[in-house]
Design a protein around this nucleic acid. Structure first.
Length: 417
DNA sequence: TCTGGGGTCCTAGGACCC
DNA sequence: TCTGGGGTCCTAGGACCC
């Protein structure tokens, strides 16, 4: 058996941890650049605040209902996610962190009553982290998703749902549209309609071979999973990323090259941090730059660029990204977004060095290790490339950002006596 | 003024290999 | 008369996830 633990309105709940005055009140969290709503507390949902709606279109609605607004604060959310994960380790030795707010737990060989266990997990996360969660328990990941959904939607479940017998999941699947199933969105649902598959139960009882012909092998696996036969294993060791991207819209549009190059240097440096964290080297970059797709005369350009040798030296990567974006830039356009991707990555441990071409120098390795050490000790912003600029007027908008309560010394909450 | 960011997997088709 | 079989690698595009 597997459990899926999914945090309720995760970002909004993170904000409420350090603002208990906002419990039971409408709260929303905006995407990067304060673009649109990505999380809503239960109360905000009840007010009819739509999800994924541009902020500027619904700002009046939020003000009118006195909704508290936050910009997203990823250092805080990442840290809270780690704390939830740590709490869950007491319940299983094998955990897959599926996303920032979802974790799968292997419960195989666990004795006792799964409903009881589910409630213990839920209470324990609330007790330790003050994060409300739903717990779904079932024989496969896809069914655990279904169970989790039910745990949250059906009041009688009280946040915990166990699907340990076929008749239980049959009852739920008959009442669930096929788009409620993990891996099935609009396009696929449209194709399934032609096979007269409308509900999750229709899919579970469909002929797997015929369904596969209409899409691909994943959907055939989904059918197996919906029948309680697991096809998807638990990935408790996250595989290394095959691509690493850092892309971001500018807080202020730019028609000149310099701010764009500064932004791209920052994105390159963020990407190198992730690259080094998984001990990889990059050989090929992908850089792009574009204007707003919501306005006329949309302009977009991208290019791949080769590093001279496999590297994780931020200076080389940032310099190449800056040169590449300069080659994409044309005057007379209002650019709103750029990005740096590492599209070819090697594992440092398995990398074969070239006998004739020199690779990255030992001095580079040492310098990068020193930068890492400084950042670990004093925070990410303690040392950076001059190419990133200092005033950074292009930096994303975060008008409503909360403090980094748990990850920055100066932001630690004070208790008034 | 104003619409995110970061990924993964699959398939089809072509080129190429022995 | 008659023209194999098995495979890899790459790319573009589509679809999905949170």
């Amino acid at each position: 058996m597997l459990a899926l633990v999914d945090c309720n309105s995760f970002y909004a709940s993170c904000e409420q941890i350090f603002r208990p005055d906002l419990r039971g009140r409408p709260v929303v969290v905006l995407s990067n650049n304060d673009g649109f709503v990505v999380a809503r507390s239960k109360e905000a949902k009840a007010l009819g605040i739509p999800d994924l709606e541009p902020f500027h279109k619904i700002e009046h609605l939020l003000r009118q209902h006195n909704v508290t607004i936050f910009s997203s604060n990823y250092p805080l959310y990442g840290d809270i996610s780690d704390r939830v994960m740590t709490t869950l380790q007491a319940f299983s030795g094998r955990i897959e962190v599926y996303s920032i707010d979802e974790m799968f737990l292997d419960l195989s060989g666990m004795p006792g009553d799964f409903s009881e266990l589910g409630r213990e997990i839920k209470d324990s996360v609330w007790q330790n982290v003050r994060m409300p969660v739903g717990v779904g328990i079932a024989p496969s990941k896809t069914l655990a998703k279904v169970a989790n959904h039910a745990a949250k939607k059906i009041p009688k479940c009280g946040g915990v749902c166990v699907l340990d017998e076929p008749h239980k999941w049959e009852w739920l699947l008959k009442r669930m549209p096929v788009t409620g199933v993990w891996g099935i969105a609009k396009r696929l649902a449209k194709r399934l309609e032609d096979l007269r598959i409308y509900s999750a139960w229709d899919l579970a009882t469909a002929n797997p071979k015929i369904v596969r012909r209409a899409s691909n092998v994943n959907l055939e696996r989904t059918i197996e999973e919906l029948n309680g036969r697991p096809c998807l294993g638990l990935e408790d060791v996250p595989p290394a990323k095959k691509q690493i991207y850092c892309t971001r819209g500018f807080g202020k549009r730019s028609d000149t090259l310099e701010p764009i190059q500064e932004a791209v240097a920052l994105y390159a440096s963020r990407a190198v941090d992730k690259l080094r964290a998984q001990r990889s080297l990059v050989t090929t970059l992908h850089v792009f730059l574009h204007t707003s797709p919501f306005e006329p005369n949309f302009v977009s350009a991208s290019a791949a660029a080769q590093l001279p040798y496999p590297t994780d030296d931020v200076r080389l990567v940032a310099a190449l990204a800056r040169r590449t974006v300069a080659s994409l830039y044309r005057p007379g356009h209002q650019y709103v977004k750029a990005g740096v991707g590492m599209i070819e990555i090697l594992d440092r441990r398995h990398h074969q060095f070239d006998m004739l071409e020199p690779g990255q120098s030992v001095q580079s390795d040492k310098l990068m290790a020193t930068l890492d050490a400084i950042k670990r000790r004093h925070g990410k912003g303690a040392v950076f490339l001059a190419a990133q600029g200092v005033s950074q007027p292009w930096y994303m908008r975060q008008k409503f950002r909360s403090p980094e309560y748990t990850t920055r010394w100066t932001d630690i909450p004070c208790v008034k006596t």
